[in-house]
Nucleic acid binder design. Structure first.
Lengths: 193, 193, 193, 193
DNA sequence: GATGAATGAGATTTCATTCAT
DNA sequence: CATGAATGAAATCTCATTCAT
């Protein structure tokens, strides 16, 4: 009864939130039911089993991933383009926190999810590499830039910050979004000009 | 009977390995006992309870952390110093994989461990910032370098690669140590010269 | 399925009966479940834990204790009054056998229960002493009666018989209720006339 | 190492003391070993199993019971004789606390011990009844005394006080030995003169 | 559609007991 | 004689899942 969404939505949200705190195993069906404000057995009317909740979220993740890839429209300015890319990456992973984390943490138990997350990284890298190669050819960025390794570094850096933001909510360690885009991403990009 | 170490060592190793695959909760005492080749109840003669195994590993982690901090001896060449730092960081986190991962994954359940891991990051950052500030003052690196933000970026990058190496054993995504130090860290450092 | 009471009632009854035979520790959750005719895990849906069963019985005990105290209405005839008192005491302790016994046997492990049982004795003693003091003042019983010590003796005697009745079901040792009230209590009272 | 008795004696004492606090089941072999200052496995060199410790104590109990019965030498003064009897009963039960308590508490699990304790009561009763019958015949006590029932009452009373003394160490409820013999037993006896 | 009651498998932990030294 | 290390059975408790209403 937490809000006026449908039961199914409330269950998905409850699951997502709890996974952040407790991991997949620690997210018990009882906790999910309590947070969603329904009876425990109601879960099983909506989903085949506990794994079914996760499957549903993975489906949404995969659909959204296509969308996010299409949303990225580099304009040929490396600084702005990296900021744009980081922003999309961050928004996407935050929206799909639970899937992202389960894919990372419990890769052995859910190889298909681990795979989906893995593909996100690869895809993101590829999009960047392709674009920058194109920009190098057209002279927009210096031909001395080591495109592959710089992209690796960039992706590792924004990945690292996202992981920290999920692990620790205090801002001591991870760098909050705005500041991260303004200072760190921009600084990183400046070396590629 | 897995090997000829003491029972306690075999238990610690078994626990450590299993946590990587299954997380803390997924690492059942039965699995630990099976892998270590002892009876389940033997665990409880060596450790107060399941948490006790973790405590023992955390103690070793904390001791080693002091050692690792002392091992870092920058020589005033930014490229070599960053490579050295990354190497120590990587060795340390790999040696203490299980504690590092539990601190990251299950921060809500084990706040003291989350804290120990957090402090490692902070400490590493501080050591680098202090050294580089010193080097900027003595002219060894350019005074235009944005020390704080570059260090942030560097730490995020190596942190990101370590996390990936734990999540995925295939080398498609994370970058294997040698290559990472030679290509990526060196490339990163080159911008600070 | 033992009978048609609610599951909770059946569990409480099973626990109560088993404690008589086996003590608290010896009353395993498996035995309770078997006697109540339910699955072991069902216990934990009705009570927080094993101790929770006992707590429930202690609550009933405390409620009933107030009732029993109010039920005692001495009429000024010492024989009839002691019989009435003994009868109420006996009925109460028999109804709450399990709590009474645990309070007695396992006082170190359950100090709050030991206390509740202790208070019952004290309260019973006080009610008798007060009433008899009053009767002595109004001349209904001889002023030479040593009220405090006689009450002590009386309480010890009926306490002793109740304890024996719980320990041994054969009538060789403890004296069955009717006979005890008719012969022993009456005899005791006759000395106070 | 607690004292310089033999290992076996130390084990018997440890067991005895612990049973008072924790009951038979709660008296674990580990606790016994700790209190006796020996290794847990040493217990099994001295006794077949945990039950064997108890058996040894029961043997001593039975031997002592014969002795105690012989020690009772009534002199024909009902007050002094009851005091003497109560004293012997008290001393004996206190010396053999653990057996007495186990016989009382865990009668279902150790029927032979329950029996031994039961027999003590019966025997004590019989000795008193026989002696008082004799005294009634010789005119030493009034022929109007209801010997059987008075003896019952007396035995219940001293039994009650002994049980309380084991359950509660504070003197609020049970009556300490000296005072009990001087006030309560004497008072009880005065009615039989 | 949703609930409440119950279940069975399995997790952690305790404890008496054995065995090699 | 005594110890330290290990065991197996059983105890308490958790959790995903089912079923009747």
């Amino acid at each position: 009864m937490a809000n006026n969404n449908t039961t199914e939505e409330r269950l998905l949200t409850a699951f997502s939130d709890l996974v952040l705190k407790y991991g997949y195993r620690g997210t018990t069906t009882k906790k999910i039911a309590d947070v969603a404000g329904v009876n425990e057995s109601t879960i099983f009317r909506h989903f085949k089993d506990k794994h079914g909740i996760l499957n549903e979220l993975v489906n949404k993740y995969l659909q959204d991933a296509d969308q996010a890839a299409n949303d990225f429209k580099p304009i040929g300015d490396i600084e702005l383009d990296l900021i744009q890319g980081a922003k999309i990456y961050e928004t996407f992973t935050t929206t799909h926190r639970s899937v992202f984390l389960i894919g990372l943490r419990e890769s052995y138990q859910f190889p298909e999810i681990a795979d989906a997350v893995r593909q996100l990284q690869q895809r993101f890298k590829k999009i960047l590499v392709d674009k920058f190669t194109e920009m190098a050819e057209s002279g927009e960025i210096s031909s001395t830039v080591d495109i592959k390794n710089e992209t690796d570094n960039f992706v590792l850096m924004i990945f690292g910050n996202v992981v920290l933001s999920f692990a620790y909510t205090d801002a001591e360690l991870y760098i909050p979004s705005n500041q991260f885009l303004e200072n760190n991403v921009r600084l990183f990009a400046s070396h590629l000009k």
